[in-house]
Amino acid sequence: MDILDALFRKNIIIPIKWIPYSQFKDVKEMTKGGYGIIYKATWLSNNETVILKRFENSKNNNKYFLNELKSSQHCYSRNFHNHIIKIYGFTKDPELGDYVLVMKYATEGDLHKYLQKEFTNITWNYQKLRILWQISEGLEHIHKNKFIHRDFHSGNMLFDLNTSAGKNYQWKIGDLGLSQEINNESSNNEIYGIIPYIAPEIFKGSSFSKKADVYSL
Rank of each mutant, 00 (worst) to 15 (best):
191 I>F: 10
48 E>T: 12
55 F>G: 02
199 A>H: 13
137 E>R: 14
87 I>H: 09
1 M>W: 10
122 I>D: 00
129 L>Y: 11
21 Y>V: 01
167 K>E: 14
181 E>D: 12
95 E>V: 15
191 I>K: 06
150 R>N: 03
177 G>M: 08
47 N>Q: 15
153 H>G: 07
187 S>I: 07
93 D>F: 07
165 A>S: 13
207 S>D: 03
122 I>Y: 02
37 I>A: 06
73 Q>W: 15
10 K>R: 13
195 I>E: 11
62 N>K: 12
125 N>K: 09
21 Y>K: 02
92 K>P: 00
190 E>Q: 12
91 T>M: 03
113 K>G: 08
122 I>F: 03
178 L>R: 09
131 I>H: 02
166 G>V: 08
3 I>D: 05
108 E>P: 00
107 T>W: 01
161 L>T: 10
183 N>F: 14
112 H>G: 06
189 N>E: 11
10 K>L: 11
61 N>T: 02
137 E>T: 10
25 K>P: 00
213 D>E: 09
193 G>W: 08
14 I>T: 15
130 R>Y: 13
144 K>F: 12
82 N>R: 15
116 Q>F: 07
187 S>C: 13
115 L>E: 01
127 Q>V: 01
3 I>F: 05
177 G>T: 07
198 I>Q: 10
146 K>T: 06
88 Y>R: 01
58 S>L: 04
131 I>S: 04
101 L>A: 06
33 G>A: 05
155 G>N: 08
143 H>A: 06
39 Y>L: 02
171 W>M: 07
14 I>P: 01
19 I>Q: 00
75 C>M: 13
187 S>A: 15
167 K>C: 13
161 L>F: 09
211 K>L: 11
89 G>N: 03
55 F>I: 07
84 I>P: 04
214 V>I: 15
172 K>N: 09
138 G>S: 07
213 D>K: 11
181 E>M: 15
122 I>P: 00
60 N>I: 05
7 L>Q: 05
45 S>F: 06
160 D>K: 04
107 T>R: 04
215 Y>W: 15
186 S>R: 11
39 Y>E: 02
38 I>R: 05
194 I>M: 12
165 A>M: 12
197 Y>N: 08
36 G>L: 04
41 A>M: 02
102 V>A: 04
24 F>W: 05
125 N>S: 14
178 L>D: 08
46 N>G: 10
208 F>C: 01
121 N>F: 03
94 P>M: 11
13 I>Y: 07
196 P>W: 11
102 V>F: 04
107 T>M: 03
112 H>Y: 12
194 I>Y: 13
201 E>S: 08
99 Y>E: 05
134 Q>G: 07
37 I>M: 04
103 M>A: 04
